[in-house]
């Protein structure tokens, strides 16, 4: 390790220690386990700053935070999968003895034998560890992909197809009493006739042109091409609005981290 790196490391360690001591001193009046609490807050602040240091460039502190995060989360998800899926859901339906062993209430049922199917599929998935019988692992995968496609077909047909079509059955003329009445009562109120009609026209034209853009069986030329270009323009305008909306949401996440740093760690804001 270079001397400069050692120097930076030493400075960070010293700053960490000072921060820990000061925080512990601050918490000693209110917290019982103030030393541990101060360590956790300081360590969380250190990890936050380590991750943010990636904005400058890749560095050992980011690597440390990254590897810690990956390692801890991978272990956490593995434990969660074991305790919540196998122990909580599967074992109580299959074995009374094992349920007692894991201190889980046994859940007998007439159709519990169905739960042997995922057990068998899981074992088949593990067969890929064997060089000779690794091909068997493809069967449970095929089962998962097939059932996913089948179940989602009905779900998406209802939510993304049928319901979208019926939602587009909108009248293009609202409260219509003739052209003269329309112009004589013209206004831009949000619940006015013009704005409501414009809204329905945008929905109708937007959906039709969007569908034409995603129609792959015909070359996008002529009138079809023009409608397709209108479709992609409408999509881009929608994406622009969505971009701004989502970025605002992300800013709130940043505000959350900064609040932690300035309030919980440094105590600069109350």
């Amino acid at each position: 390790m270079k001397r400069s790196s050692l120097l930076v490391l030493a400075v960070v360690v010293i700053l960490f220690a000072i921060s820990w001591i000061l925080k512990a001193n601050q918490l000693s009046a209110t917290e019982e386990n103030y030393i541990l609490e101060a360590f956790l807050i300081t360590f969380a602040a250190f990890l936050t700053l380590s991750v943010l240091s990636f904005l400058y460039k890749d560095n050992p502190f980011y690597k440390f935070a990254e590897h810690l995060f990956v390692g801890v989360s991978a272990a956490f998800w593995m434990c969660l999968g074991f305790w919540s899926t196998l122990v909580k859901n599967l074992i109580p339906r299959l074995s009374e003895g094992l349920s007692e062993f894991f201190n889980e209430p046994y859940m007998p049922g007439d159709y519990n034998f169905f739960f042997w199917i995922p057990v068998i599929l899981g074992i088949l998935l593990l067969m890929r560890l064997s060089k000779e019988h690794g091909w068997i692992a493809r069967w449970p995968l095929a089962f998962i992909v097939g059932t996913t496609a089948g179940l989602n077909f009905v779900r998406y047909l209802r939510s993304d197809f049928i319901e979208q079509i019926s939602a587009t059955f909108v009248p293009l003329l609202i409260e219509w009493q003739g052209v003269g009445h329309f112009f004589s009562n013209f206004n831009l109120a949000i619940d006015g006739q013009f704005v409501m009609m414009l809204s329905n026209w945008v929905i109708f034209v937007g959906v039709m042109c969007g569908l034409i853009y995603f129609f792959f069986s015909k070359e996008h030329t002529g009138v079809f091409g023009t409608a397709s270009r209108v479709g992609i323009w409408i999509l881009m305008i929608t994406f622009g609005a969505s971009f701004g909306y989502t970025v605002m949401g992300r800013i709130s996440l940043l505000v959350g981290r900064l609040t932690f740093l300035f309030k919980d760690w440094l105590g600069l804001i109350s």
């Binding site: 991750v51 890749d58 990254e66 995060f69 990956v70 989360s73 991978a74 956490f76 998800w77």
Partner: peptide, 14 residues
């Protein structure tokens, strides 16, 4: 890598 969303992102960025 990991099931954790941002743990995965941190690793992929690395």
């Amino acid at each position: 890598v990991t099931d954790e969303q941002f743990g995965y992102v941190a690793a992929v960025d690395g």
